[in-house]
Simulated scan of single mutants.
Amino acid sequence: MRELIEYVAKSLVDNADKVEINEINGAQTNVIELKVAKEDVGKIIGKSGRTADAIRTILNCGAAKQNKRYILHIIDE
């Protein structure tokens, strides 16, 4: 799932080299922290959060195939 989110995020932003992904594995839920450059946060979130919701939907669909639960946190610097 980490590679999937990394691919999507790098495709959306201008500064692909500043995309950082940290995955925290828990007992029932895994958390993916997505950190991008300050000027690219708007591109990841999108208008009214639509792009972020779409990324979360893709993440949840992939997680459902693995019978896992993932949460995406977008961190701005």
Rank of each mutant, 00 (worst) to 15 (best):
R56N: 09
A63W: 00
G49F: 06
A16L: 05
T57G: 02
G26I: 05
A52D: 10
I74G: 01
K35Y: 06
R2N: 12
E77G: 12
Y7T: 12
E20N: 15
E77C: 08
M1Q: 10
N30C: 03
G62Q: 11
I58R: 11
K38T: 15
E6S: 08
K47M: 10
A54N: 13
C61W: 13
V8N: 00
N67T: 07
I75S: 02
E39P: 02
N60M: 09
I74M: 00
V8S: 01
A27G: 07
M1R: 05
G62P: 10
D40G: 07
R69F: 07
T29L: 12
D14P: 00
V13P: 01
E77R: 12
L72M: 04
N60V: 03
G46A: 08
G49Q: 09
S48F: 10
T57H: 13
I71T: 03
V19L: 04
E23A: 12
I24Q: 12
D40I: 08
A54W: 13
I45T: 05
E33Y: 01
I58E: 07
R56Y: 05
K47T: 12
A37Q: 07
V19T: 02
I45A: 03
T29V: 15
A9T: 11
K43G: 04
V13C: 04
K65N: 10
E20R: 15
R69P: 00
G46C: 05
G62T: 13
V19R: 04
E6M: 06
A9M: 02
E3P: 03
A16Y: 11
E23K: 13
C61N: 15
V36S: 10
K68M: 01
K47H: 12
Q66D: 15
I5S: 03
I21L: 06
D53R: 15
